[in-house]
Design a protein around this nucleic acid. Structure first.
Lengths: 231, 231
DNA sequence: CCCGTGCAAATTGTCAACACTTTTTACGTT
DNA sequence: AACGTAAAAAGTGTTGACAATTTGCACGGG
């Protein structure tokens, strides 16, 4: 048989279903902010926009509800979840131990090549930090975190970690997340790298857990400061 | 308006939808073993059995896919997930730090009444253990774990923890999970309780994390022993 | 006897229509 | 003008039907 060369869109449909493709698209719309927290998802409107019917839309929304990005109220509709500061802090707590575990597991199995790769990420962030280049910093930071979680060798851990990170995107004040300065964060990255390079699981756990826990503290500090100004 | 007294089944439908009710029912069927791992979920058959149509069934299955109890293959159907020993061990790793966090958080907020309640659970298990009464032991053990996770004051943590426990039910050899004896487990429970009662977060984290980690080790030991006998 | 081919049954994927609920709008009363 | 009420519009919940794909099975060739 002659192998066909379908469009990339159709290629996706071969391994997943239409509902899954819709789920990814809606998730993208939510995480990018196109769908604002609290906003209702209009099934008819979305179906028309994506050139499909309501059936697959409802399946996709149901899946998103399970991942916590959407809440459904019977006979009322599905709404983009609104994340309170308390919930955001809760998520940080859970995320911190998961990231700690990722560091611990990575320390036990890391290769020299992976250490080198991590070093490049950290060095790149330090460079961006010195130049106050936030645009360059952000993707590198994301890449380092993804790299650590993916390299830990525990897909369950990676799935739950990613789920938490996605949920955090719903937090209205997520632009504040980097509040507290890049220099402090870089220092923590250095300690993480050192612990991994030393292949010390306990030290790596603490360094990674602490990194997220400190980020939580920084967020809390910013929110508190904001609250005092506003109220 | 006169409040109606609908059947319990309909009462559920008021707060959730038919798809959610179906999701719960199918989840129950899976966790109870009525649906065996690897088995396909026949949409028509299930719809007829539950007196509904395929629409809500598909929504429910889609949600279960998100929680990892079901895997869907396009044009083939949805299957009860089969959990390998490697995946089970992965889950234990994640569960251990989550339970550790639960213990840590509980130690920081526990009331005297809660300490007393925990003590009763532990005492009950010790009693059941002495009598080798597994039937009495199991629900008490479950209750203690649920109590700890629910009392930690972090719903995100509780949700993810429960999701992991449900997934572990898919493991074919879950009957082996208690392998290693109840006495050892009770000793760990005592240490957990002592750490909570002392309101020592660090000690509580270690005691709780260790409890699940040891359970993982015991499972691993049993599986290894079994493997040697078989192969 | 084994294997591939092709038809038939079963099953999933998708859609459009209908029933029911909620929300909005218009209207009349106070 | 404000409020309550009722009709109309909009939207969700559910169903049955049709299309497309996969699976099971009989048949015939090697």
């Amino acid at each position: 048989m002659i192998p066909s060369t379908p469009s990339q869109e159709l290629a996706v449909l071969q391994t997943s279903s239409l509902a899954t493709a819709i789920e990814r698209e809606v998730e993208r719309l939510i995480l990018s902010g196109s769908f604002a927290p609290g906003e209702r998802i209009n099934e008819n409107q979305l179906a028309q926009k994506l050139g499909t019917s309501r059936g697959p839309i409802r399946e996709a929304v149901r899946a998103l509800e399970g991942s916590g990005l959407v809440v459904s109220i019977p006979n009322r509709g599905s709404f983009i979840r609104r994340l309170s500061i308390e919930e955001a802090l809760e998520i940080y707590e859970v995320r911190s131990v998961l990231f700690g575990l990722a560091g611990q597991l990575l320390a036990m199995r890391v290769t020299d090549k992976q250490i080198k790769q991590m070093g490049e990420f950290v060095a790149g962030m330090e460079k961006a930090s010195r130049k106050q280049d936030f645009e360059a910093y952000y993707p590198l930071n994301l890449a380092l975190h993804e790299f650590i979680v993916d390299s830990a060798g525990n897909t369950t851990l990676a799935q739950h970690y990613r789920s938490l990170v996605k949920k955090l995107h719903l937090f209205r004040a997520r632009s504040l997340v980097q509040g507290g300065g890049l220099a402090v964060s870089n220092k923590e990255h250095r300690e993480m790298l050192a612990a991994i390079a030393a292949r010390d699981p306990g030290r790596a756990y603490e360094a990674h857990r602490g990194h997220v826990a400190f980020a939580k503290d920084r967020l809390l500090a910013v929110v508190h400061a904001e609250g005092k100004v506003v109220g």
